[in-house]
């Protein structure tokens, strides 16, 4: 059904986005918790930096990544020399670009659901002998699960559709960083490949739809458990 090239682009896309979301899940949860629950000087600044990728042109984000994590960048140089890791022009680099772009969406969704959690339930848990940590795991976390799911799928979709930052930071290397949008872009640039481009278009739409439907289904299931229509 799919040509080897399409298959390659699709699996690469899924892998890059999967790794991106997995990598930001915990930091995103932590950042959302800090922003939702604590007041500290410079909070507005932190909030702004987290949300910057939402409003910056993605190319700028990619360029900043390249400048800081490239071989010439101070951070990139350190990574290369101490850990032997080089991110630009690799699929891990593409995942990083996707992660940075998706981070604010995840934080936003989790933060919103954290803010809607009834703090009184957490108080009740504390009086029942639960430490802060146990309260978080047994009360807060289950209550924000729908928000985490929604945010996770949103981040996954954002990472899947990432183009500007990826092509700037990780370039467009077949089999390494040529994800679906990049493959589509290459086909559009090539005369006579309109049909192949159309096929990729359809694949992208189908993947996005599946993600959205799955997230909706999961979130509804989780909400139903909370409202108690199921035991």
């Amino acid at each position: 059904m799919l040509t080897p090239l399409e298959w390659e682009a699709l699996t690469l896309s899924l892998r890059v986005s999967g790794v991106a979301v997995a990598a930001i899940l915990l930091p995103g949860l932590g950042m959302a918790y800090v922003l939702a629950r604590f007041d500290f000087p410079g909070k507005a600044l932190v909030d702004g930096i987290v949300h910057l990728p939402l409003v910056l042109p993605p190319v700028v984000v990619g360029y900043l990544l390249l400048v800081s994590l490239g071989r010439q960048g101070s951070l990139g140089q350190w990574l290369h020399e101490t850990l032997g890791v080089s991110l630009p022009f690799t699929w891990q680099g593409a995942a990083l670009a996707g992660a940075v772009m998706a981070f604010p969406l995840l934080v936003r969704a989790v933060r919103l659901s954290l803010e809607s959690v009834d703090r009184k339930l957490e108080e009740a848990a504390r009086t029942l002998g639960a430490s802060r940590w146990k309260t978080f795991l047994t009360v807060t976390l289950p209550l924000i699960l729908p928000g985490i799911l929604t945010g996770g799928v949103l981040a996954f979709a954002r990472s899947l559709s990432e183009f500007g930052a990826t092509i700037t930071f990780a370039a467009n290397i077949p089999g390494e960083t040529r994800t679906l949008p990049l493959a589509l872009y290459s086909l559009v640039q090539t005369p006579g490949k309109e049909a192949a481009a159309a096929r990729l278009c359809v694949i992208s739409v189908v993947v996005a739809l599946i993600a959205l439907v799955a997230s909706e289904w999961l979130a509804r299931r989780a909400r139903r458990r909370l409202e108690g229509r199921h035991a």
């Binding site: 339930l121 108080e123 009740a124 504390r126 029942l128 802060r132 009360v139 209550l143 035991a231």
Partner: peptide
């Protein structure tokens, strides 16, 4: 002493039951 080490039971004005546990789960929580 933090609340979870005070060994005081509190019944609040609103019942404050955990919506994601059954009644049995709520009773067993602490």
């Amino acid at each position: 002493v933090p609340p979870h080490r005070r060994q005081l039971g509190v019944v609040f004005q609103e019942a404050r039951l955990f919506p994601h546990y059954s009644v049995r789960g709520n009773l067993r929580y602490g």
